[in-house]
Amino acid sequence: MDVPTRKLKTAYRLMKTIREFEERMRSEYQQGKLPGFIHIYRNQEAVAVAACLDMTNEDYIASTHRGHGHCIAKGCEIEAMLLELACKEDGLCNGKGGSMHIADMSKGMLGANAIVGGGPPIAAGAALTAKTLGNGAVSMAFIGDGASDQGTVAESLNLAVVLQLPMIFMYENNRYAEFTKSPKPDGRIAERAGAFGMPAEVVDGSDFFAMYDACQQAITRGREGGGPTAIEAVCNRYYGHFEGDPQAYRDQDELAQERAVSDPIPRFLADPRAAALSAESIAEIDAAILSEIDRGFEVTYAAADPTPDKLYTDVYIHYEGRLR
C-alpha cells in the first residue's frame, strides 16, 4: 500500500503532536498547573491517527477517558483543547468538560467519556444517523481492553450487526485495565467481536501502516453499506492508568522492554513506506508543533476562568423551571 506524501506528513505531524502535547501536559500537570485527572496516550498514537486519517468532519468518533490523542487525530485545535484541559472559559466545552469529557461537535468528536464503556452506544446512534440519512458517513467507538468487558459494548456490537450500521469498533488493547493486567490473550477481544457476526482482526497497534490499512478497509466497508467492523489494536500503555500512577503493579523490566519496541513514531520513520518524508520536512514539522504548543500554553495561562454565572448555563436549551 502506497501512502501519498501529503498523508504521510499529516500522519507524522499528528502522531508527533499528540506525543509532544501530552509530554508537555504531563510536565505542567506535575507542577500543579492543570486540574483534575489526566490519562496519557503515549505509545498508542498510531491507533488514533491511522483511525482518523481518512475521516472527515462528517464522520464521528466516540472517545474514552484516554482521549487526547483521539481529539488531536480528529482535528481538534490545540489551543482550544488546552483551554479546555485547563478548564478555561474559552475552552472547547467552556471548561465544563475538562480532560475526561472534552468534545468538539464541529469535528464529529462526540466526547471523551469518563464512564468506561459509555461511548459505544452513542457511536452506534451516530452510525444510525448516518445510515438513516444515507450520507456515507461512518462512526467509530474507541474501546479499551477493560471496556471490552462492559455490557454496553456487547449490546452495541449486537445492535450494529442487527441494524448493519456503518460503525467501527476500535479496540485499543494496551493490556492493562486500570491497575490490572488483562487476563485475556491478545486476539481474544477481536474473536469475541467477530462472534457477533462482523469482520474482526487483530492488528499491531504500534505499526501505523498496518493500522492504516485495516482502518481504510473498515471505513470503506462502512461507507459502502457493508456494516460494522472490529479492529483489535494491540499496543502498549507507556505510563500509568492516570498521570501520577507509579505502575508499581507492573514488571519493570517487561515495561522497559515494551516501551522500547512499541513506540510507533520511530517505527513509522524507519519504515521504507515513509521514505518520502525528508529530514528537512520532519524538522520543519517538529518545530511547528513545538511552537504551536508553546503558543497554546501561553494563551491558556493568560485565559480567563468561567464566571460564576456560567454554573447555570447550558443545562438545557430552554427550561421553564428553576435551576437554583
Partner: peptide, 25 residues
C-alpha cells in the same frame, strides 16, 4: 428504516437514541 425494532438491550436502545439525537435525528 424509520420504525426500528431493536434487540432487548436497553442501554443500546437509549444510548443509540441519544447518539442519533446528538448527530441530527
Amino acid at each position: 428504516h424509520r420504525v426500528i425494532d431493536t434487540p432487548i438491550t436497553e442501554s443500546a436502545i437509549v444510548g443509540a437514541a441519544g447518539g442519533a439525537a446528538l448527530t441530527g435525528l
